[in-house]
Design a protein around this nucleic acid. Structure first.
Lengths: 127, 127
DNA sequence: GACAAACTACTACCCTGGTAGTATTACCAG
DNA sequence: CTGGTAATACTACCAGGGTAGTAGTTTGTC
């Protein structure tokens, strides 16, 4: 029953992010929130939300004549599934390979490195 | 002119991986190589390769009556672009957030943690 | 009660990935 | 030269994301 959440399109993800950030939103709310990033017709957002509901990504309830949408899947789940999917596809599931890749291809500030080191040290202690 | 390589479909990526692993391959080669993972018609592979050439992902040369395909984009580039794309979409470009997420949602063995720590230590030294 | 505003419903496209069948061509074996 | 085989070319289709117009409904306001 649970939807496959490992591949969301750009717009879908953006919409989900809006919903996650406020737990509930009308079409107008979402449209408003996205208007700063992209210029979309109101109906585009509405249509997308309807499609997303079919896919099980969101629910809605009626409030007067408007639909109030809320996420049907948690941000953590989607993020996790999308990340896992990519790690699987690109690095055969190897976390080390993935992190290694990220570290070697991106500019990483000294600060960030320190933070990462700390993060791992923490993990090692608690695992 | 360079193709956007940040989103490859499943099949496309699998095909690229075959090409990368042997630098050149005929349709038959690719089909053969993938037959262990998935059952595809020969023409499916051929069609996909043609589409990929249109997209600028591969090149081909003629050898007798067969096409010999080779990658038009490097594995490192694709991997990098795909990874970056995801980090941008999910973590607003924050590497730390991405790594943090990976560490907290996946099972990470003690061994792997050690390897990661080493990796970061290395980075810190050379950066 | 009439009208504009706000919404949803429906429909229609386009694009790309994926999948594969059919047609055509080239070549090799007998 | 005939038939089979192996290739590519062409065509077709489906699904899903993305985008949006138009139609219809509800409702609040003069």
């Amino acid at each position: 029953m649970k939807p496959k959440t490992h591949r969301l399109g750009d717009l879908q993800l953006k919409i989900m992010q809006v919903l996650w950030s406020r737990t509930e939103a009308t079409v107008a709310d979402v449209h408003e929130a996205l208007s700063h990033q992209i210029d979309l017709a109101y109906t585009t957002v509405a249509t997308m939300l309807r499609k997303m509901e079919l896919r099980g990504l969101v629910h809605h309830r009626n409030e007067g004549r408007s639909f109030v949408y809320r996420p049907a899947v948690a941000a953590s789940e989607v993020t996790r599934n999308m990340a896992d999917d990519l790690v699987d596809r690109l690095f055969h599931g190897s976390l080390t390979a993935a992190v290694n890749h990220l570290l070697t291809t991106r500019e990483v500030s000294r600060d960030e490195l320190a933070r990462l080191e700390q993060l791992i040290a923490e993990k090692r202690r608690t695992s």
